[in-house]
């Protein structure tokens, strides 16, 4: 085919590749956050953002500093961390057991999956009053709220992860005469681990979200209760300080799971 100008002259081939390969630039991400916060502060100082609508970052930082200085931060955090750890562990353990059973045994699969499908979409927050009747106004109902919220996604992640273990590896185990227990321990569990750990990322976030709901009722301490009280008082700097704490908590948990993945999934 002749070139558009019909000359047939020698010319470079136009480049059509490249792109579609975004790179991670952590520094750019951090810089974006810093610039946004700086703009926010500048807007507040210039009076463009009324403090009633959005307190300045400096005010939030001051609230956070006072919270830390007075020992309040640690008091609230320790109460919340205990609930998170208890609720998450309980929900995760139960979810792993049910998920494994559903992933391995025909008899357990349909019953448990149908129950999960029926109950998973229920907003756990709506069940809080029921939990108070069942488990009391103390720690029981709070841990139950978080545990239940964690349980269902864990079941779903675990079943999916077990289903995702390549069947050829299981056949290999059978062909080498491994016992059923050995196949579960040496092939199914390690094979499902990446999927289960991905589930952990989700459930850790859910646990933190539900923390606020769990601490709605009867909590004297806790970062969720603190945020609710601050919101109720329209103490917006404290409210945002609490949200910053929750967000940092989320980042921390995500980082911890990342470390766990790097350690347990070094083979990937």
């Amino acid at each position: 085919m002749p070139p558009p100008d019909g000359s047939g002259a020698e010319r470079p081939v136009p480049f059509r590749g490249g792109g579609f390969a975004p790179h991670a630039r952590p520094l750019l991400g951090a810089a974006t956050l810093v610039v946004l916060v700086a703009l926010w502060q500048a807007g507040a100082m210039a009076g463009l953002i009324p403090r009633l609508f959005l307190p300045a970052p400096a005010a939030v930082a001051a609230a956070l500093y006072n919270l830390a200085l007075s020992g309040q931060l640690w008091l609230q955090m320790s109460a919340s961390l205990a609930r998170l750890a208890g609720g998450w562990s309980l929900g995760t353990l139960a979810g792993l057991l049910v998920g494994l059973a559903a992933g391995l045994f025909t008899l357990a699969r349909s019953p448990s999956l149908s129950v999960v499908a029926a109950l998973f979409p229920i907003p756990k927050i709506a069940l809080v009053p029921l939990f108070i009747i069942w488990f009391g106004i103390g720690e029981g109902s709070k841990i139950a709220t978080i545990a239940l919220g964690v349980f269902f996604p864990t079941v779903i992640a675990t079943v999916g992860a077990v289903d995702g273990v390549p069947r050829n590896l299981i056949r290999m185990g059978q062909s080498f005469g491994l016992s059923r227990a050995a196949i579960v321990a040496k092939i199914v569990l390690p094979g499902a681990l990446p999927g289960i750990l991905t589930g952990f990322r989700v459930t850790a976030a859910i646990a933190i979200i539900l923390l606020v709901a769990a601490e709605m009722i009867g909590a004297e301490r806790g970062i969720g209760a603190f945020v609710l009280a601050a919101g109720n008082l329209y103490d917006t700097p404290a409210l945002l300080a609490g949200i910053v704490v929750l967000s940092v908590l989320g980042l921390l948990v995500s980082w911890l799971i990342g470390r766990l993945e790097r350690w347990l999934l070094a083979w990937r």
Binding site: N168, M172, P190, L193, L265, W267
Partner: peptide
Amino acid sequence: LNPLTYVFQDFALLPW
């Protein structure tokens, strides 16, 4: 330890 033993086309190694 295992009289009938396979060698697989896709190797079937445990990646972990």
